[in-house]
Design a binder for these strands. Structure first.
Length: 194
DNA sequence: CTTTGGATCGTCT
DNA sequence: GACGATCCAAAGG
């Protein structure tokens, strides 16, 4: 299976997460032979965002958010789930884009093996914790470089949608007025709110 | 199909 | 000691 594409430049990640997040739609998230196309993302960060893990300052967990852009921020939640973010903005400015859903591209057998609970392939990567389980992304990869690390984001020339669906973020209790979620309209792999 | 409760533990107060 | 940037199975319509 083909996994062509080049890593995005460091500069791509240096801007504001609200500009970068929708540009991540269509890019490939790759871990070994497993890869998926990003179809849903959310933006977190900034002093104005009470939903961000960085809202109350730097802690042991959110350290990667305060680091340089283009790195992974992987966090553990609900006692059992991992979720993956792309660190954005210059170092010291804690911003990150949560990858919420992928359209599987390669390594499907490995994904199915990693997610026995998935009833079908549509349930393989349609959620932030599900896609991490499918691709084998855990806290061991927190803080790794997306340009040269084990997990990468590649640009294979796919163009982000001109008119992504825009909506409030899922699962947050604060900042529900902010429309910081972007998804590929009509894609069956986009996650569904509770 | 939708709704609901439970799992489970690292992190921060 | 409380609470998650969630997911799953079971139960009900």
């Amino acid at each position: 299976v083909e996994r062509t594409g080049r890593p995005l430049t460091r500069g791509f990640y240096e801007g504001d997460v609200r500009d970068i997040a929708p540009q991540l739609l269509g890019k490939l998230l790759v871990h070994g032979e497993r890869a998926g196309r990003i179809v849903e993302v959310e933006a977190y960060g900034g002093a104005e965002d009470p939903a961000s893990h960085a809202y109350r300052g730097r802690t042991r967990r959110n350290g990667a958010m305060f680091g340089p852009p283009g790195y992974l921020y992987v966090y553990f939640t609900y006692g059992m789930h991992w979720c993956a973010n792309v660190v954005c903005a210059p170092e010291g400015n804690p911003q990150a884009a949560l990858i919420r859903a992928l359209s599987p591209v390669s390594g499907l057998p490995a994904m199915r093996a990693a997610r026995p609970a998935a009833r079908n392939d549509r349930h393989l990567t349609n959620g932030p914790a599900r896609l991490c389980q499918a691709l084998g992304i855990t806290g061991a990869l927190d803080g790794t470089d997306l340009l040269v690390g084990e997990v990468r984001i590649l640009d294979d020339g796919a163009v982000p949608p001109d008119d992504p669906e825009v909506s409030p973020r899922i699962g947050v209790r604060q900042g529900t007025d902010l429309l910081w979620r972007w998804s590929v309209a009509g894609d069956e792999h986009v996650s569904a709110p509770r």
